[in-house]
């Protein structure tokens, strides 16, 4: 009956059974691996400009060729994965903290504060992430931190809204009621019983937040308001290469493909995870059960 033990393996097993889940996991693992490796080693120094050899075609020395000032495109792309990962991870963490804090406040406090928070969340949801980021840029100047804060706030309220319903659902289950009857305080109940049971929902939202963060970084850096010139970033590459896309169309394709594949990976991972932890299969009043037992039960019910 301890949810943490039965649920974890159950959804992991489900995840491994889905192509989308496998693809998503591979993309995320590759992103982390290349972010780590590129921090220590890249084939060529990504910032080394060789103005005598611009626009070289792909070769063994330059896997994807060189750009307008003779920088190695592959190495720059490789190192860009680190920026992408940092933005995605940072944004997700901030968004989760904001989301959990708002959700917990909404769950624990009295009616008035709860309703006020609900209204504020409903209003803030209307503010698009990119607009928040542009607003912060207007004040703080261009920086990737703006993206992290903007996604943190903009997506955090999304997480708060989704988890609001989930918390309500779990709070009505028998084991939470039983714990309350046994004298467990609301805060303890939240940490011990409610959060572990909505953890999969959080992880789904996290992977979606990562996708939003990567696209926002790309958009903002494209506008020239994201990564500074000393930071390798895929969005910045799109920005730098757009002027040459007519002459050297392939060069601008690489960052576009890299961003697309990474976001696709995070989205598919989130989708697969959502299916694997479908709340409709977990919604039994006797608390979470793994999917297999519910399937067995359904089979037993139909003659």
């Amino acid at each position: 009956m301890t949810p943490r033990r039965t649920q974890g393996p159950a959804w992991l097993r489900e995840l491994r059974r889905r192509p989308a889940g496998i693809f998503g996991s591979i993309v995320i693992i590759l992103l982390v691996a290349s972010a780590v490796v590129s921090s220590f080693w890249t084939p060529v120094d990504p910032f080394y400009a060789d103005p005598f050899h611009p626009w070289l075609g792909p070769s063994l020395a330059h896997l994807l060729g060189t750009d307008a000032v003779g920088k190695d495109i592959f190495s720059y792309l490789f190192l860009g994965s680190r920026t992408t990962l940092l933005v995605a991870a940072g944004s997700s963490v901030v968004a989760t903290v904001v989301g959990i804090a708002l959700a917990a406040l909404g769950a624990l406090t009295g009616r008035w504060l709860r309703e006020t928070i609900a209204v504020i969340v409903d209003i803030l949801i209307a503010f698009p992430v990119l607009l928040i980021a542009v607003m912060l840029t207007a004040v703080l100047g261009p920086s990737l931190v703006n993206v992290v804060i903007a996604v943190g706030i903009g997506f955090g309220v999304n997480i708060a809204r989704v988890s609001r319903g989930e918390i309500r659902r779990v709070a009505r289950t028998d084991y939470v009621l039983a714990a309350r009857a046994a004298g467990v305080g609301p805060w303890r109940n939240l940490v011990d019983h409610i959060f572990p049971n909505i953890a999969p929902v959080f992880i789904v939202q996290l992977s979606l937040a990562a996708g939003v963060a990567i696209l926002s970084e790309a958009g903002l850096s494209f506008l020239g308001y994201g990564a500074d010139p000393g930071t390798a970033s895929w969005g910045r590459m799109l920005h730098d290469l757009q002027n040459y896309i007519t002459l050297y169309p392939l060069t601008a394709v690489w960052p576009g493909v890299a961003i697309g594949l990474t976001v696709l990976g995070f989205n598919l991972f989130g989708d697969a995870l959502r299916e694997a932890t479908d709340p409709r299969l977990l919604a039994g009043s006797d608390g979470p059960m793994d999917r297999r037992s519910s399937r067995r039960r359904r089979k037993a019910a139909t003659p």
Binding site: G219, A252, I259, G260, N267
Partner: peptide
């Protein structure tokens, strides 16, 4: 649709 939704709009 999944793939297109993942591509940056600027691209």
């Amino acid at each position: 649709a999944q793939a297109v939704a993942a591509i940056p709009i600027v691209f």
